[in-house]
Simulated assay, not measured.
Amino acid sequence: MSNSVLTLLGRHAMKLAVVAVLAIPAIVSVHDARTKPNDPNLAQLPARPVSWWELGEAPAKVTAWINDHFGYRNDLVKLNNRMRFTVFHEFPSVQMSSGRHGRYFLTAHGTDEPPYQAVIATCGGAVLSPKIAPYINQLFDTYHAAGLAPKLLIAPSAPVVHPEDLPAWLAPRCMGLDTPVKTLFASNALNPAAAASILFPLEQMREIKKSATLFPKTWFHWTGEGLDQVARLSLTAFWQRPLDQAPALQVKKHMQYSDVSHLFDGVGLQSETTEPDLEASQVTGCFGEKCFPEVEAGKLLRDVSRFGNPKAPARRLLIISDSFGSKISPWYSRYYREVEQFATNNIDLLSPAQLGALKTYMYRNPGDTDILLLYHDGGAMYNDVLRYATERMLPVPAK
C-alpha cells in the first residue's frame, strides 16, 4: 500500500472509525426490520414518497424510525440509564426522583406531568375538587341504603410518612399535618356518618415507621411488617374487634426488586421486604387472576387476592381498593377467617353483566362481612379517582 494511501487513511482514521461503529448497528437495524415481527408501538418506516408533500414529511418519519429501531437500541438505552444513575444519581424519567438517606420517590404519575407533581399534590400543593366531599357523602349514603356499613381507609403515602427523606427544598412542605385529606376533614363538608367511617392514620404511621417498615426505600407502594399495625389500627377504629383471638402471622424477609423498576430500564433498585409467610402460618393464599374462579370479573381485574385462615375468627373481610390493597390484604388474614380483595384499577374492562355478577358475589352474606374501601391519598383525593374507581362498584339500594 502506497505512502499516500496510508497518509490519507491516517488523516481520516477517526472518521472511518465512527462510520464503522455506526455501520454495525445500522446493519442490525435493517436486518431486524426485515426479520422481526412489526411492533405497532414503534415508529413505522414510511413508504416511498409519491408526492412532494410526502417527500417533505419523509425525513422526520425516517428519523423517528431510526430512533426506535437503531441497532442495539435497548442495550444502549439501558447503558445510558445505568451510567446516568451511577454517575449523577439521576433517573431517565420525570416519574422518579432521588431523595435523601437512600430513599427514592415516585414524583409524577405520568411522563407528561410536571416534576414532583405527585409529591406536591399529596403534601398540600393542590386544590381539592369540590366534587370530592359530595361524592364521599353519596358513597356512604348508597351503601347505607343497601343495608351495608363500609369503612374507608385512606393510606398516607411515602412523601407524607417520610418527609425527612425528601430533597431538602421540598421536605418542609410535607412535614406538617395540614395535608389535603386533613383539610377535607376540617372543612365540615362531610356528613357525620361519612366522617365517622374514614381513617387517615398519618400521625400513627409516622410513629410506626420508627420501629417497623411501611415503605421500603426503593418502593412506591407500602409493604412491610408495619402493615400489621395499620391493620390493627383500622380494626380498632372501625369495628372495635378483639385483636388477639388468632396467633400472629409468621413472616419472611427477602430482597426484592422495586415495584417501580419497570419505569426505567437498566437501573435495578432493590430493597429488603418483609411479608407474611402464609405457608408457615397455615394460611391459604392466592394473588392474581386465578383467585376467584366463581366470577369472571376476577380474571379481568387481575389485581385481586384472597386468603383463608382456619385459626382466625369466623368472619369475612371484603377489601375494595386501588393497588395498595393487595400489599396489606394478607396481613388481615390474622384477624379474619376469609379475606377477599378486589382492586378497581381495571374496572373499565368489565361489561355490565360481569360487573353485576361481581357485585352479587362481593356483597353476599352481609351479616358476616366487614367492608373496607382502601385508597392511597394521592389517588383518593385527586382527579376524581375515588369516584371513578368506586362509583360502578356501589351496591343497589335495598327495596
Rank of each mutant, 00 (worst) to 15 (best):
R11T: 08
M14V: 11
S29K: 08
S29D: 08
A33F: 15
T35F: 01
K36V: 01
P37S: 02
D39S: 05
N41Y: 14
L42K: 13
L45F: 15
P46C: 03
A47D: 15
A47I: 07
V50L: 13
S51D: 09
W53V: 14
E54P: 06
G56P: 10
I66N: 07
D68T: 02
G71Y: 13
L76V: 13
R82N: 12
M83K: 10
T86A: 06
T86S: 02
P92Q: 09
S93I: 01
S97D: 04
S98D: 00
G102I: 04
R103F: 10
F105S: 03
F105W: 07
L106Y: 07
A108M: 08
G110W: 13
Y116P: 05
I120V: 04
A126F: 01
V127R: 15
P134H: 03
I136L: 15
H144V: 12
A146S: 14
L148E: 00
P150Y: 02
L153F: 15
L153E: 13
A155E: 09
P156E: 02
V161Q: 08
H162V: 06
L166K: 02
A168H: 14
G176V: 04
V181S: 09
K182R: 06
N188S: 11
N191A: 03
P192E: 00
A194E: 04
A194I: 00
S197Y: 09
L199I: 11
Q204L: 08
M205E: 10
M205K: 04
E207L: 13
I208A: 10
S211V: 09
A212M: 10
L214D: 06
H221R: 11
H221S: 14
T223K: 11
T223G: 11
Q229C: 05
A231N: 00
L233R: 03
F238A: 03
P242C: 11
A246G: 05
A248I: 09
K252Q: 14
K253A: 15
Q256H: 13
Q256W: 11
D259A: 10
D259Y: 12
S261F: 09
G268F: 13
E272F: 12
E275S: 12
E279L: 12
K290V: 03
C291I: 05
C291K: 01
P293M: 11
E294F: 08
E296R: 15
R302A: 14
S305W: 06
S305R: 02
R306L: 06
G308P: 05
R316P: 00
P330S: 06
R337Q: 14
N346G: 02
L349D: 10
L349V: 07
L350V: 10
L355R: 13
T360H: 14
M362N: 01
D368Q: 00
T369L: 01
Y382D: 07
D384P: 03
L386C: 08
R392S: 13
M393E: 05
L394M: 14
P395D: 05
A398S: 12
